[in-house]
Design a protein around this nucleic acid. Structure first.
Lengths: 319, 319
DNA sequence: CTGTTAGCGCCTTCAA
DNA sequence: TTGAAGGCGCTAACAG
């Protein structure tokens, strides 16, 4: 019973005598043996591990995507190595490159990386898939949410309610999804000459939203679109402290529909983004690449408007 | 310029002529070369990767611990491989064993695994550290929250407010932290003969809490301690729909102090558990083990009572 | 200080 | 059907 026989049995290579195979199995059970994944990886050139590079493990969106990727990959026998860049954009490409070397592929979530940097990085990462952003001229598959159409729908909802002066609390100016929101806003504004949307730099956290409450309350806007739900919740909190009633005096909307959005007071009108599905779809495309198959078309989930209690028609005095 | 020279230079082994080293560095830069982590791992017997086994990536507690572990480990040049068991307890040990083979160690978060199973598993996982549970008779370091004292403090708060009939919405009956809560409750009840705490099986999710609202409202309890904040928030929501005012008619308390607990309506009284720190401390101990040093003493964080608006003295009619 | 040799643990031709 | 040999890419011990 030689090394290669054992190897053959462990890998289910049929060409081994049943009796011998049986003995090998017994022995390996008795010795609690199983092949070293490390050595196998070295010789096979596959680790069955993929890296997931993300900006911040504390962000609900990335948490959801991670979960989607992890679960989907696990079903196919793959594990995921996490690389949290801690919001440090300059570290992203280094980390991605570094973790890529330990894995078979990478799933990249880098909303703030510059287009150029990304374009030169991607070829070195292959196979790779992108979450929530696409880069023209590269072949990396994409699974993303269509932030542009999401905000269009949200803004149209506000316009339909009668709002004409709306504030947009912007996130990171260099983030892809922020730009897409801006594009959507511009689109709606072009179609509605009487609509004025004022952009205010804000941020992406609860604290950022809370801090923006005063400025928002002082403006003449009748509705606010926060960059995301976190910001909207902070705003709701700050507005509450300032005595501003929502939605009576001011309508507030979020973005993402994170798990808690429906339990704020009032329940937050927002746009839902299917983050877990984003992760799953990213995995599906990566798997195709890993299997040498052609990945499915890029997929863009259209966010769905969730009208809840935080938006209403503007007061008569404002209308 | 031979293989070993290159190896020496890449590893900063000083015994190489400066000029030669320079040339090696140049060449490796030009060729964009860096040693294969895989091959290094095989020969060094170290992967600089640790597995983090957890029941559910959607649970805020585990998310926080994962973040703590990931960030702390990254600072020491280690990466983390995630193994989400999807709440399937029977898969936990298999997954732990499997991922352990690809890594240098494992951080185990398995609140529902049986004591026996855990005891026989740990030796095969070494080096390993435990999060949020300890097992007598094993040498695995522990970083945990002291759930017992946390609930004691919470219950004492309610007692101090004048409550004498309290409902405890229990989580998984087989989870370690649930047992610890029960122990704490018993302790307080023993010291307060006039206090009655009724345990009601519930669960650990928002939906579970929401579903328990009717039963809770129908009982004669004046206060409720939910298993965790998620349950408390669900309860708050259900109670709101049923027209029960909190805290006027009923006091509600959570556990964990997840990020959104302070923004519920009313703000949730709860007990804060430092989840990120849990992860960090777990890593510190694991690192000691990996470095062949003696890990620091087991650490138990004492949850801190966060009194907010969801608890108050019972109404006169109840007092 | 540098090159050669052996081997980490496995899989895969190639002969037998 | 089975065993022997080579090599995956690297590091470490050994000479030179």
């Amino acid at each position: 019973m030689s090394l290669s026989t054992v190897s053959r049995v462990m890998n289910g290579n049929g060409t081994v005598d049943t009796d011998l195979a049986e003995r090998v199995l017994e022995a390996s059970k008795a010795l609690n043996y199983s092949a070293s994944p490390l050595a196998r990886s070295l010789v096979l050139g596959k680790t069955f591990t993929v890296a997931f590079v993300l900006p911040d493990l504390a962000n609900p969106t990335f948490q959801g995507a991670l979960r989607g990727v992890s679960r989907a990959a696990a079903k196919d026998g793959y594990r995921v190595l996490i690389a949290d860049t801690g919001e440090v954009v300059s570290e992203e490409s280094i980390l991605a490159l570094e973790t890529r070397r330990r894995c078979d592929a990478v799933i990249l979530c880098a909303p703030r990386m510059s287009e150029e940097r990304l374009r030169e990085l991607l070829p070195q990462l292959e196979p790779a898939v992108l979450i929530n952003r696409d880069v023209l001229g590269t072949s990396a598959p994409v699974a993303a949410a269509d932030y542009r159409s999401g905000i269009v729908e949200l803004l149209m909802h506000l316009v339909g309610l009668g709002h004409r002066r709306v504030t947009f609390l912007a996130g990171a100016h260099n983030s892809a999804s922020n730009r897409h929101r801006q594009l959507g806003i511009e689109e709606v504004v072009r179609a509605h000459p009487d609509l004025v949307v004022t952009e205010v730099a804000c941020g992406v956290t609860f604290a950022d939203g809370h801090g923006a409450a005063a400025a928002v309350a002082a403006s003449d806007a009748t509705a606010v679109m926060a960059f995301n739900d976190l910001v909207a919740m902070g705003l709701l909190s700050g507005l509450g402290e300032a005595g501003v009633r929502v939605p009576e005096q001011l309508s507030v909307a979020g973005f993402d529909d994170i798990p808690f959005a429906q339990y704020t007071t009032p329940p937050l009108t927002t746009v839902s983004v299917p983050v877990t599905e984003l992760g799953e779809q990213a995995w599906l495309r990566l798997r195709a690449l890993l299997d040498g198959e052609a990945p499915d078309h890029n997929v863009y989930f259209r966010p769905r408007l969730e009208v809840r209690g935080s938006t209403a028609a503007p007061q008569a005095v404002d209308a």
